[in-house]
Simulated scan of single mutants.
Amino acid sequence: MDVDAARQYLLGKPEAIEDYPFGPDVAVMKVRGKMFATLSLSDGEGRMNLKCDPDQALALRDIFPAVIPGYHMNKKHWNTVLLDGSIPEGELSRMIDHSYALVVRSLPKAIREGMALRHGPDILTP
């Protein structure tokens, strides 16, 4: 998955929007005002920051050399994923889905329920 494919997948999540609060080189993907990913657009291979369950974050870092502690993020809850082609596309999609679901589950109950009605109950699970 390259930067363009990652961007399309991130923006394909229900109610996802793209913002640039840190300048034109870093896209911040949000759902209902909450960040679920960043995507660096400036370096050659690209990188994403994704929210992650702390135990899973450590496991992914052990399995994939291209997964490192979150750059400029809380390293317990965020991973930086280098888009160097070494991680299977299905696994990258799963990591994005997990990040998105963690953020959606943290939204107030009324918002979560409304999103589940509009987009289906699977919105809450990765």
Results as ranks from 00 to 15, higher is better:
residue 26 V to M: 15
residue 26 V to K: 12
residue 28 V to M: 12
residue 28 V to P: 07
residue 28 V to H: 07
residue 29 M to N: 02
residue 30 K to Y: 12
residue 30 K to P: 03
residue 30 K to A: 07
residue 30 K to F: 04
residue 31 V to S: 04
residue 31 V to A: 05
residue 32 R to F: 07
residue 34 K to Q: 11
residue 35 M to N: 14
residue 36 F to Q: 06
residue 36 F to D: 00
residue 36 F to L: 07
residue 37 A to M: 07
residue 37 A to D: 03
residue 40 S to V: 11
residue 41 L to N: 05
residue 42 S to E: 12
residue 45 E to M: 03
residue 45 E to K: 06
residue 45 E to Q: 12
residue 46 G to R: 00
residue 46 G to A: 05
residue 46 G to N: 03
residue 48 M to D: 09
residue 51 K to L: 00
residue 51 K to V: 01
residue 52 C to L: 08
residue 52 C to G: 05
residue 53 D to K: 07
residue 54 P to F: 10
residue 54 P to L: 14
residue 54 P to R: 10
residue 54 P to S: 14
residue 58 L to S: 05
residue 59 A to P: 04
residue 60 L to G: 02
residue 60 L to F: 11
residue 61 R to T: 11
residue 61 R to M: 11
residue 62 D to H: 13
residue 62 D to R: 15
residue 64 F to L: 08
residue 65 P to S: 13
residue 66 A to E: 08
residue 66 A to S: 15
residue 68 I to Y: 03
residue 69 P to W: 00
residue 69 P to G: 04
residue 70 G to D: 14
residue 74 N to D: 15
residue 76 K to W: 03
residue 76 K to H: 09
residue 76 K to P: 13
residue 77 H to V: 14
residue 78 W to S: 06
residue 80 T to Q: 11
residue 80 T to F: 05
residue 80 T to Y: 07
residue 81 V to C: 08
residue 86 S to M: 10
residue 88 P to C: 15
residue 88 P to L: 15
residue 89 E to T: 07
residue 90 G to M: 12
residue 90 G to C: 09
residue 91 E to F: 01
residue 91 E to T: 14
residue 91 E to M: 09
residue 92 L to A: 02
residue 95 M to C: 06
residue 96 I to D: 00
residue 96 I to H: 02
residue 97 D to R: 05
residue 99 S to C: 14
residue 100 Y to N: 01
residue 100 Y to I: 03
residue 101 A to Q: 07
residue 102 L to A: 08
residue 103 V to H: 13
residue 105 R to C: 05
